[in-house]
Design a binder for these strands. Structure first.
Ligand SMILES: [Mn+2]
Ligand SMILES: [Mn+2]
Ligand SMILES: [Zn+2]
Ligand SMILES: [Zn+2]
Lengths: 148, 148
DNA sequence: CGTATATTTATAATGATTATAAAGTAGGTA
DNA sequence: TACCTACTTTATAATCATTATAAATATACG
């Protein structure tokens, strides 16, 4: 998982200035193991930094994503893009009801990547591996409401 | 790969009416092994069916996706959702420059799904497995333009 | 064939993300 | 430390894919 300093160093090495806004966004990403949207980060940081604008959050997330420091998961059944500060290869399992996202590591990911290298001819840069389903909570709710 | 009749039967069994529009959209999906967006299908069918509306394409794609007859790949670096008529488990490899999407099968997908079943507690419904990179064509262009 | 009802269509609305440009600031320099 | 300038942030408007609405239309079934 990325540490705050790690993310800030990546920005520095890319020649970008370290602003309080960027520092706060990096801290949020490093200190939470959720899979936030731009709006989630904005809402959270607004309390401690009232002048923050959503545009800055979008800009910083795009910058970090372009540098490969974070990953773009994409939508989760809602209509908003989620980000992942964990860039280690892993699978994100998404609840289509409540949008909760959990991580699942798998040693088979390496083999899959090899399959693609051999078969596609693409020069791979990243991946977005999502499974969809109902989380345990939402399964329970679905069962109790549909009547046994 | 889905056949036209296959897709139409799925709609019928769901109690939906078989209209010329739906038939044409199902035919497009069955006869092309691309990964189209709603707009791509609309543009293509507009020639033979001038009254077709984009709304109908969206509705039909959503219906088919909800029935599990096609899969939603999500965005491909553009800002539009791509669909996949091939519902067999496979990986989509996406070019971040030209948005070309190719399929790569892998026998390791089964094992990954087992890993998730064991570790997540989610009841899985579907997956979206995308790798990103540069297709051979775009690699060639990148090299010839950047270098000696 | 005629009817009830699902569907299509045209149109407007929504909402996430991006573009723009003025105001503000980080960070190097003297 | 004070200053300068290019980079950032912010407020605001624009974009554009997708969805909502409601009137017009057509399917399926007796
Ligand atoms: Mn994750
Ligand atoms: Mn595919
Ligand atoms: Zn859930
Ligand atoms: Zn390409």
């Amino acid at each position: 998982m990325n540490t705050v300093q790690n993310l800030i160093d990546i920005l520095k090495q890319a020649g970008m200035r370290i602003t309080p806004q960027r520092r706060a966004i990096c801290a949020y990403l490093a200190e939470n193991d959720n899979h936030p949207t731009a709006a989630m980060i904005y809402d959270d940081l607004k309390a401690e930094m009232p002048s923050l604008s959503l545009m800055t959050v979008y800009n910083t997330l795009n910058t970090l994503a372009n540098l490969g420091a974070i990953h773009v998961i994409g939508q989760a059944g809602d209509d908003t893009v989620h980000y992942d500060a964990d860039t280690e290869p892993h699978i994100n399992v998404i609840c289509i009801n409540c949008q909760k996202i959990v991580d699942v590591p798998s040693e088979h990911l390496v083999e899959i990547r090899q399959d693609i290298d051999r078969q596609s001819g693409y020069r791979l840069i990243g991946s977005r591996l999502s499974f969809y389903g109902l989380c345990p909570d939402c399964q329970a709710k679905a069962e109790s409401s549909s009547g046994h």
